[in-house]
Amino acid sequence: MTKIKVLVLSIFTLAAAGVVLFVVISKRPPQYYVRRGIAFGTNVQIAYATKKGNAKVVVDAMFDELERLNEIFNPYVESSELYKLNHSNGKWKEVSPRLLNVIKYSLKFAKYTDDAFDPALGRVVVLWGFNTDDPEKWRLPSPKEISDALKHSGYKNVEIDGNKVRLLNGAWIDLGAIAKGYAVDVLLKMAKLNDPESTGYVDIGGDIGIIGPKYGNKPWKIGVRNPRGDMNDSIAYVYLYKGTIATSGDYERFIIRNGKRYYHIFNPRTGYSPDNFEAITTISTSGILSDAFGTAAMVGGFDKTKKWAKDLGTAYLIVNEKGKVIKSDLWKDYEEP
């Protein structure tokens, strides 16, 4: 064979290999095992990729874990641990380490936020009917009903002694503002325990935790729902390689009476929902913090939110009561991939 022929054949072979390689790389099979389901009283989606073991087995274990967590934290299911604590008639009750830890965290956060966050507003939540999915049961209570419910509310009625908890004055704990975030943390821990190099995400009803970057090196693009738009309408996007993001808002469980919107988050001092923001989205390293922060911020208002965010290192996007979008400086760091 002549040199020219060898050269031409080599170039051809290389080019052909290039084309095949391009196709193989661009059409690589999806690395993620994705499971969607209803768990923990909400819509759950988990995507997981690991080189250690079977991703499906790990994700299935996560869904099983959510069932166990629901049996601890759902205060409106008679079989749950929290229901039993709420109905223990003021007696000391031994609780599981998980429930104890979350109660302790919530009390600490209540003190930190000068009572803006309060885990013991169960009576108020039930009074308004926002503990159910049924809008026909959501109602505007009378001022007297609200003041009566407040007499049996407040985190100062929660006492802890070792692994025992006592609820005074008939107070009920409702950890709805924090439990989803805690569940995100638990699942992230499970994912990383199986494989520290694993990637993917967990999404528990809009509370999202990043297990690791998409395909190992790309950020996950996350939309922030427009509080006055439809389900799939985003007002902003962020790119996360790690961390957690959660949103609190006034747009899913609400009633409008006399032109005023009342929703499922309450000011512990008044028993009514606050008017500060339509929604707030928080990014932080911990799911429980991102979740709790939003509720506290809705009650505390802008100045306190700004201060807490600076102290705790959280990033936020607020849609204020006039629909204006306010982003913290830290938030802007997440807007570029």
């Binding site: 809009g206 996950w220 693009k221 996350i222 922030v224 729902r225 985003s234 993001i245 959660a246 808002g249």
Partner: peptide, 10 residues
């Protein structure tokens, strides 16, 4: 594809 991978909601 949608405009994002995931959506955060309340």
């Amino acid at each position: 594809p949608a405009s994002c991978d995931l959506m955060t909601t309340q």
